[in-house]
Design a protein around this nucleic acid. Sequence first.
DNA 1: CAGTCGCTATATCGAACCGATATAACGAAC
DNA 2: GTTCGTTATATCGGTTCGATATAGCGACTG
Lengths: 177, 177
Amino acid sequence: MLDMAILGLLREGPMHGYELKQRLVDLGFWRISFGSVYPALRRLDRSGWIEVSGGSGRRKEYRITAEGKEHFQQILEDEASEVENTTAFRVRLAFFRYMEPSVRIGFLERRKSVLRERIAAARGSLRKTADRVDRYTQALMEHGVKVAEADVAWIEELIASEQLDAPRGFDDAPGEK
Amino acid sequence: MLDMAILGLLREGPMHGYELKQRLVDLGFWRISFGSVYPALRRLDRSGWIEVSGGSGRRKEYRITAEGKEHFQQILEDEASEVENTTAFRVRLAFFRYMEPSVRIGFLERRKSVLRERIAAARGSLRKTADRVDRYTQALMEHGVKVAEADVAWIEELIASEQLDAPRGFDDAPGEK
DNA sequence: CAGTCGCTATATCGAACCGATATAACGAAC
DNA sequence: GTTCGTTATATCGGTTCGATATAGCGACTG
């Protein structure tokens, strides 16, 4: 996941590690530590998806390679990708501009149905355990459901505004089912 | 964090690993894997906070020890504990009944101020980056702020209902500042 | 102008955690 | 009676976290 976020940011231009970490924090994905960022950068370098300029010492610059861009595009648009993972969904949303318009709505829809399943499950376990859990636990579970419902509503808004932009089949994917 | 959640559940009675994991999932803290649960149980056993009955084979039962209860109480009520961590806060809330009433409101207040700081920071970074991020990223950040605001409102409710139960200084902490 | 404080920047370490997978016993359906 | 889903314990590799170390740099301070 971190790999995708880093590649996505490097698509906009080369950066050094510290700046990259600041940007990641700014986007508010999650709180990332250097203990994740630097190993990730080494990993991406080994895979040939980024390259490093400025040897050992201060201020190394990282830039994405052509293969890196290709790889980023692939993992970004991967239909089988985990929509159950909130972070993964949020990162993909942040890079929606790089995603085929025809794929965007599919992602949003799949996320919505995952959330709905989760809401149903949470409601079930609330009913099931209502008698043996205390009011704090109950408040916690109920709040979780409320947040998830707000998320669904938000995603529906996103879908609606996406459909306004592309009311009927898009240039890139004309007849594609 | 997992350690605290496990000890908290075992306070209610002995369980085996699988059941424990189900309960953890039911509570909806986060999605826990066996790859976390079993190492955690071994860890807790080594520390002497739980004990295992039923040797190698099927269905081991785990029960909390007296030292385990003491340790649980300590990490639960630790004033210096991380309120920045959403998961840590949620787990503690689920075990609020084991917490000194005088300590509960303190926790809620500290969580609230952390969220408020985070909202302010997010608003700042929204203003700062408004021109160079696209509408998807912006929608993501704005939604994050909204969710955090709803969280603050929820915590304020919790504080209010807590103050109803204990309107003025409690028996346990009479003159304590 | 020496001292030190805080920020930028890179890096590593151990511990914890995740996701996938292996294994096996059990009950029930077919 | 064997195949299937569920319960149950366990491990493995890879990733991530949190803490910590190091050092150059600018700014302010006595």
